[in-house]
Design a protein around this nucleic acid. Structure first.
Ligand SMILES: [Mn+2]
Ligand SMILES: [Mn+2]
Ligand SMILES: [Mn+2]
Ligand SMILES: [Mn+2]
Lengths: 237, 237
DNA sequence: TCCTGAATTTAGACTCATCTAAATATAAGG
DNA sequence: CCTTATATTTAGATGAGTCTAAATTCAGGA
């Protein structure tokens, strides 16, 4: 992904537009303002600049109805995501930075990573496809390896699975999850789910009764599970 | 060195003012413009901003006679230099980036390195005091370990010494020197020096006649030598 | 179909860092 | 001591990215 004649601010907007489409299905002015920590008029102004970039539009603006990325915009967003996630893994594996702190570091480093360094890091890590949170790392060509996963809140009671992705970047939240043993690759079994997006009770690993924890629905929905192979998906057989 | 509420541009100016004082004895508007790749009026404008920083001046401006750093300015410059040189060594040792390319990478990374990462890198490298070019790495507290060295051009004919620092960052120059075997820790013996800053002929290592090379004075003066211990300094005994 | 509240955009201003062109200071030589 | 080349500073403009306040649009409910 050698391109990206975009400023840091532009890269940041494009990345957040991509991520909003991924987790909310759309990107509005307000949502972008919240995620970027700026006011709505700043977002509108930047969207206009991105829409009339001199080497072709990076976004399509539907006034009053949000914004989405052009092919060029997606390419820039995926490059930033690749940088971000490679850096997260690198910091975690090679410098022992804890998983709840790699995100903020990567957010600053991703914009100044050269293609050469990107390549060296990828090679050193063995061309990984997932970062320390289970987020997929796009390939050099911008391809994301698809993986089958369901949210913890969508699992049937009694089902067992492996935690494969935490869809949440905030340090304190990640720290809390880790304190309960809810980390990547850990096996969990659903004990109960309160209806209407309520509390999920899970057993962690193969442990006894003190490895059972109750999680609020808002938290649990950010935990993604790869079903155990010989488990029917979503049905209770 | 936790401080540095300075923008990237401010950090870059402060660093170059520091380096100019180190290698030229002073920093003028023109010299700064050259090193920073901007026009002289931009330098004047920035110097004024640095001189009246809201938390105290970072530089002293003597109009028409250059600029120097205040204590606060020195602290910021040394922090950048520490970041820069730690990053150079890190990239060189842990990612195998060749010594002629670490400088440009570090120039971008130094401004986004957190104190936490700085500390982890320093620890991983064993709290080093010199970078891959032999440039000293300031301590956390901003102290530079002094080392006795002379320029290759100042060595008497027949003297032997160890290359301890290359006072030059440009990639192609470093590549050329490396191609002659003129790298850090290598031993060299002066065969002859043409007068008036002329050509220096050196024998590299313990090699035979084909390890003898002639260097222009402009190049040779950037090669710093630590005298072999039992060699009288500067005298021919 | 109209009203209203929330989201969005427009208008206008500001800071930072840069530029070009013009004015001015310095230092060196006659 | 005066002249002049060069370095430096001033003046004024520009672009990126942000802000506040005001105007506009949209969508849902009466
Ligand atoms: Mn890249
Ligand atoms: Mn991640
Ligand atoms: Mn530091
Ligand atoms: Mn160096």
């Amino acid at each position: 992904m050698p391109l990206s004649p975009a400023s840091v601010a532009e890269q940041e907007y494009l990345k957040q537009i991509y991520l909003l489409h991924e987790d909310e299905g759309r990107a509005t002015t307000q949502m972008l303002a919240d995620r970027l920590g700026v006011k709505p008029p700043s977002v509108t102004a930047m969207i206009k600049r991105l829409a009339e970039d001199e080497d072709g539009p990076l976004v399509r603006h539907m006034p009053y109805h949000g914004v989405d990325l052009t092919e060029r915009g997606v390419a820039v967003a995926l490059e930033m995501l690749r940088h971000h996630r490679l850096i997260e893994l690198f910091l975690s594996e090679l410098l022992g930075v804890p998983w709840d702190r790699v995100h903020e570091e990567a957010d600053r480093l991703e914009h100044v990573l050269s293609e050469d360094l990107e390549e060296r890091i990828a090679t050193k890590l063995g061309n990984p496809t997932v970062d320390p949170h289970g987020d997929p790392i796009p390939s050099r060509e911008g391809v994301i390896m698809p993986r089958e996963m369901v949210r913890l809140t969508e699992l049937p009671v009694g089902a067992t699975g492996v935690i494969s992705r935490i869809d949440q970047q905030e340090g304190p939240v990640l720290q809390y999850l880790a304190s309960l043993g809810l980390i990547l690759e850990e096996t969990v079994t659903v004990q109960s789910i309160a209806p209407f997006g309520g509390v999920v009770t899970v057993r962690v690993g193969m442990g006894g009764p003190d490895s059972v924890h109750a999680l609020g629905g808002d938290l649990a929905k950010h935990i993604l599970i790869a079903l155990a192979c010989d488990e029917a998906e979503g049905s209770r057989r």
